[in-house]
Nucleic acid binder design. Sequence first.
RNA 1: GCCGAAGUGGCGGAACUGGCAGACGCGCACGACUCAAAAUCGUGUGGGUUUAUCCCGUGUGGGUUCGACUCCCACCUUCGGCACCA
Length: 818
Amino acid sequence: MRMSDRYVPQEIEPRWQAKWEETGIYRVKEDPDKTKFYFLTMFPYPSGDLHIGHWYVMAPSDAAARYRRMQGYNVLFPIGFDAFGLPAENAAINHGIHPKEWTYKNIERMRKQLRSMGAMFDWDREVVTCEPDYYKWNQWFFLKFFEKGLAYKKRAPVDFCPTCNTTLAREQVIEPDRVCERCGTPVIKKEMEQWFLKITDYAEELLDFSKLDWPERVKVLQTNWIGRSTGVQFRMEVKDHPDKSFEVFTTRPDTVYGVTFAVLAPEHPLVDELTTPEHREEVEAYKYKAARQSEIERLSTEKVRDGVFIGAYAINPMNGEAVPIFIADYVMMTYGTGAIMAVPAHDERDFDFARRYGLPIRVVIAPPDWDGGELEGAYTGKGVMVNSGPFDGLSNKEGWEKIADYMEEHGIGRRAVQYRLRDWLISRQRYWGTPIPVVYCEKCGIVPVPEDQLPVRLPDDAEFRPTGESPLKFHEEFLHTTCPKCGGPAIRETDTMDTFVDSSWYQYAYVSPYYDKAPFDPERGKYWLPVDQYTGGVEHATMHLLYTRFFTKAMRDLGLVDFDEPMVRLFNQGIILGPDGNRMSKSRGNVIAPDPLVKQYGADTVRAYLMFIGPWDQGGPWNPQGIEGVHRFLNRVWALVVEPGPEAGGKPEDAALTELRRMTHKTIKRATQDIEAFKFNTMLAALMSFTNYLTKAKGTAVYGTPEWDEAIRNLLLLMAPLTPHIAEELWARTGGEYSIHQQSWPTWEEELTKEETITLVVQVNGRVRDRVEAPADITKEQAKELALASKGAQRHTAGKEIVKIIYAPGRLVNIVVR
RNA sequence: GCCGAAGUGGCGGAACUGGCAGACGCGCACGACUCAAAAUCGUGUGGGUUUAUCCCGUGUGGGUUCGACUCCCACCUUCGGCACCA
């Protein structure tokens, strides 16, 4: 008897974790002789508890990283904490704990929980974003961006929660009803001076995914988010105002002859100048209402498209017609030019509006079978142009180009591209974030803090009051400073940065944590970068993943990196649901916590079950009984390896040994192909089948042969990435050299995986009628003969005419009869 | 409304390039061990029926094909994203 002959994960797991730590097998260094592999999984926010969702992204990532390592790559698999953010500050406001204390306590706790997972994280490279040595570089990036014109300040409306009395990050506004995620209060808009990063400069390049091996889904989400549309921008003169005109953007220049009115956004700068006295009162009222509109909850699902005539007329440059100008809040100042040409016949919104105000609806694209009568609704399909002067008779597709050409030739307008993407608003009226390194001087205006004065430290002794203003505003020492330019009195910016800034470049920090001359050591960066494989949730598709791509492109243009994309491959895992099939939430009471499961079953079982539950990108409900099955499997493997087999089995038959080797090599092949494609569920199924096979074979004479040892050895090696502790323990018990995690991934011999005989399926008219054993190298003619002779085929072909026989090599014969 | 993904046993899911549908696991049933139970092990497990040399079956309806979960067309349902973007 050794220490224990039963599988007790609670005993072996901490023991091996300690040994791994002690021997430092997971610490990596740049090694020019080895091919690097940078495997990155999204770093967690230190919320205080590692939940099953963290496990679901990290455990399979760890398995995949371990596999790469066994394949001989020099694998960088770092971990850190996304440590700035709102919850820390809320804890301060609600419970009087300092955000820093709260954060570091949580980090401490989560480090322990993460270690219990048995992952191969290189803890020496840990990065914590709330450290001044980290956020200093956020500030440095900001300054560089500012120099390049990529960071700028402007007035903009932000989301504000009147109950919490604070502004919210965009991601903290829950969408359908636009309510505060913390208290459920409807969010209102507030105009404030804000800092922006000019991500729109890269809009076009961000649409290019050719250098990325990313899920189609994410690419589609980003493409839609960026929202590129092509059209024509042209100028409309205002009647009786020779010096006034405005630009409109349209994607439908082919409908320009159908313009019967024009609409300006209520905030459009020309509105005041063009409004005639008799309409002024109504216009002012509408503008006021529209401004308030955004403050009032947009409760109604039915959008009422209303507006007001301002008393002026715009000239359609194509036909010289004067059409009335309205203001309406369905036209946004933030998109395009803030003004549109309205073609009610061919745009649903314009149609609604025209109906409401009795404006003419002029058809210029004839719908199929159109009788010339009135339309029931806007017709947005294709058709032949009518009522369009010289362009009549053209298909609208042709007309689109012809009219665009005409406008360009006559200097009326030009082809233009518009994006839905807006610049990235990074100002937060919050304490627990990176101070924006700018001071305001009465004399010099906005002055960036010089590089050598970084970091602008976040003072610890702030006071937390739910006043809606950053505590920094009340911190006299922080607030008052001297102007770096003129030395006169100045005031610091008290807003902090969006925490997405922190996560936009953390992958670079890992290559040389807290390097003090640059965001990262260029030498080491050259070796490790870019990230080869990234894993994390799809919920970051249009935020983090877009921001970090933007950062990398901006960094490239600053000369920091020489590649275009931060992460070459991306994998989005799914979401683990509660046992009831719903999203886990405390209020539903369906939350599965990993810690008690680790205690009960061990980390290996939890890891393996998460991988076995289904395809990794699919997620799915947690089945409390399902985990038992995986646990049983590990117990069976344990018994297979540890429990003594039968005594004298006699001499094994050659055929039995051949089969054993075939099973071994087939399993290596399947498992390798599966893990390569992140198909952990089928990989485990293969390992289970193999284990079941070996358990049966153990009672026969093959037990104890070299072939048997090969089988066990390989089984453990294949399990090592998935269930690192039990694999290590059994490896040691079978005399393997420490550590199994430093062994090479097994390879298979294709010859050995091949069956000697195949089961030939015999079909008649596509229906299975028999199965016959045949040698693997059977010829087409032999196969046909064999099939025809089979009982099942005889039964179903008797008395019928054979039309043809199809042979799918190695698989089946289909006899077609009439 | 627009964009995207997915529908396979009681359940999670598997199926290479169009070639044996349901691997593996859960659950269930029966059996072994036990005084008994748990655990463990073994056997069975899509449905129907005339229990077979049979029929039906991968959301629905059609199509292509010797052959369709797989390809094409139309539709239904569920989930996710965007939402007055001109």
